[in-house]
Amino acid sequence: MLDYLLFGALPYVALAIFLIGSIYRYTKKGFQVSSLSSQFLEGRKLFFGSQFFHWGIVMLFFGHLIGFLIPNAVVAWNGSPVRLLVLEFTAFGFAISSLIGLLLLIKRRATTKRIQMVSNYMDYVVYLVLFVQIASGILMAYYGRWGSNWFASVMTPYLCSVFAFNPNVDLIAQLSTSNTMALLMVKTHIASAFLIIGIIPFTRFVHFLVAPFDYIWRKYQLVIWNWNHKEIRTSRNYFPGKSRDFKNN
């Protein structure tokens, strides 16, 4: 029953909250969409914490994404034991990196007076769910072999079934492995992942939704006219008024 709740219902609740909440916050509470950087108040301790955590978590995110998008390629890559080990150890390294970073960040926030002034309870909720997520992932990888193969063969079909609105809960519920610890960690990891998705709109997690990838192809200078006289509506020009000029200034 709990399995159906966690892997059949929770995903949809989480995704619905995520979608509605994020769109609402972005459109109606735009001022509150920020990474809330505290480097200005404390920059030294932030360096290792933030770098270790962010680079680790970004790599892990893309690793999971690859496992979801091209599972066959991952399985094929893992065909050779050497390549399997390279993949597993790389991923494990990034996980350790993000865990160390997270612990450093928690310590920084807990011990720096200035940072406490800009902390709210949701920041600690974020730390808690991230710790559970990363720690369960690390333990799962340690106890259950091999995570990358398992993700491609079980997790990807499960996620596909979720996105197809026909969740195949049995894939997770009837997982059988000799190691009960691994099984527990797998379930924790999945449930906590959906929990994170669900609380994104209510936490500083929103900042990753606005990661500035468009900066890569944007022109450097940005000039905006309140009213561009050159673009006053004519019979051929259907959208008059405000215009953005991305030309090089």
């Binding site: 969409v33 468009d214 900066y215 200078q221 905006i224």
Partner: peptide, 23 residues
């Protein structure tokens, strides 16, 4: 995030507070 811009009419440089993400 493209929050900063120069106004075309008078060249005043501003930060759009709703687009600034604290990078």
């Amino acid at each position: 995030s493209g929050a900063l811009y120069k106004r075309g009419e008078d060249g005043v440089v501003l930060i759009n507070q709703e687009r600034c993400r604290a990078w």
